[in-house]
Amino acid sequence: MSVFIIRRLLQSVVVIWVMSLLVFGGVYLIGDPIDMLINPEADQEDIDAAIRALGLDKPIHEQYWFFLINALKGDLGSSFIFNEPALQLILARMPATMELAFASLFISIFFGIPLGMWAGLHPESIAGRSIMTGSILGFSLPSFWVGIMFIMFFAVILGVLPSGGRAETTEFLGMQVSFLSWDGLSHILLPAVNLALFKLSLVIRLSRAGTQEVIHQDYIKFARAKGVSEKRVILVHVLKNILIPVVTILGLEFGSVIAFAVVTETVFAWPGMGKLIIESIDQLDRPVIVAYLMIIVFMFIVINLVVDILYSVLDPRVRLQDVKA
């Protein structure tokens, strides 16, 4: 077990290192680093000073070393626009994104599993077919377009929900959250549903396939033969068995929810990390871009690592195979 974890940890370190090379290469080598990292409104004297301060007059391998050491210290540069450390800027926006991501995961699970099970139990019924057609739409429609339609319908035509933004936050268990008030809920509803659509379709598909597989198993027949009520068969015997793959895959997909939040946050003007990165790209605020990319890559690697380890705990075959290889 520990061999497996150490191997995975080493791999993750290698991946982070490769990504740091790529991000460094992308930002420092492709464009002109002086343009990118120094405020263009500075005068020549300041530019020269900044070049020396940033070490841009040094050879390239020393520059990379400088970047790496600073990154390890948690210093990813300061934003041009806000004049604050980029890392802090992003961390300040993180709770909003997390709130949105968890809200949409919640929606995917609590609507996706029942809908998928229904479609699996009644595959030929009209409801079952409509659920599956709906999930195909959820996969193929671009989410920004669905978001616009939501705004159009619920905010412009019906006028029942706000078109964007986040409500006042309140403190809850030491975090700033907005979903505790009625106003907060009405603000988060549309973006959360929008962000959830893709995952919802995925969960529907997974639970439908799972249900159809499980329902023919002997233990289900046995439970029915034993006289267990149909409600109990479905809610206990079927549900428990489809839950494991669904939850595992959702865990893996959590990172992509955060990545896709970029789109939803832009459509609904949700003040999270995703909106920040788009604004930073627009304004060429390079330190923030670099910091965002490094943070999100790091998050992804941590998620993948945790899922891998959990997997190996649940399924010993995975780690045995890996140790042999």
Binding site: L22, V23, G26, V27, I30, G31, G255, S256, A259, F260, V262, V263, I277, I281, I289, L293, I296, V297, F300, N304
Partner: peptide
């Protein structure tokens, strides 16, 4: 293991 939109974002942020 990375979503497509993230990779595209990284590239376009650096390429323009």
């Amino acid at each position: 293991s990375f979503p497509a939109i993230l990779i595209a974002l990284v590239l376009l942020a650096t390429l323009g």
